[in-house]
Amino acid sequence: MTPTSSPFKPEPLWKVRVHLFLGAARRNWALFAESKIGLVGLGIIVLFLLMMAAHPILMSTVWEPRVYDPVRGFDPRLVGRHPAPPSWAHPLGTDPIGRDVLSQLMWSARSEFALGVTAAVISVVIGTIVGAVCAYFGGVVDMFFMRLADLEMLFPFIALLMVLQSVMPLTLIRLALLIGVLSGFGGITIILKSQALTVKVKPYIEAAKVAGGSSWQIIRRHIIPNIMPLSFLYMMFNVTGAIFTEAVLSFFGFLDIRMSWGIMINTAQESGYLGAFGQYWWLWAPAGGAITLLCFAFYLVGRGLDAVVNPRLRKR
């Protein structure tokens, strides 16, 4: 090596990498923040997270567990008057069997997040890997997974889940796994595969082959990182899908879940309070609003990420 008179001390590798990572994160954040939509979405999500975090604190301080427990609670002071309209004690009223609606709403946020995020992560992990593999190998492998995806897109999987729940009880975890796996092998695979195809034909893939990379090494090091941004984007949209699916299934009472926003509406419906629409609004509006708002928030974040991921929208 030539002795250089450079004033630069070589930094340790890891330090440089951390710097690079932070730099990239900062740039991407700036792009994300530029589109205000994403920030709004993020704000709403944070709000829900706060709600979720506040629930156990409230339960252990101001809320008497026997009254405010979202599943087993009952307010004896209001016997006979359930469902009670909003009051100081129950800001969003009580449901037909005397439980506090606000407590239910806050408590459920946790399961909604768990479900949405788990399902989305599973589906995107599957979609990314299967998409990359299909694009890279092509041939029979590709054909098999593409037909599978077509099949799934033809077949409404809400119906499939309804059938499944008659065979086994659908708990939250099972539901998350099922939604994740089913949508992972579905449309998202096709989208990520077409993205992977544009990466596969790049000469740097050939260069990696010549350097001695095996198929799996190339998929892992070159193809997956290059479709990752798009995967991440679809993850946001998939959260929306999962939450929505859960709501629909709970509404029809198909799920073995103790409490969720869907179940809140289901309870109202079961006990016949949904008919008089405006009168008992506190039974359905908070849960319905929460579902819509959270889905919308993830959608907005997705749109915001689109500006980061999709170079088309950038300058030049």
Binding site: K202, Y204, V210, G212, N226
Partner: peptide
């Protein structure tokens, strides 16, 4: 892999043959 160790190629278009990431 042993063959790749021995035989290399310098690619023509440096705008496309370097991974942007």
């Amino acid at each position: 892999r042993a063959f790749r160790r021995k035989v290399q190629m310098i690619f023509q278009d440096p705008y496309e043959s370097l991974n942007p990431r």
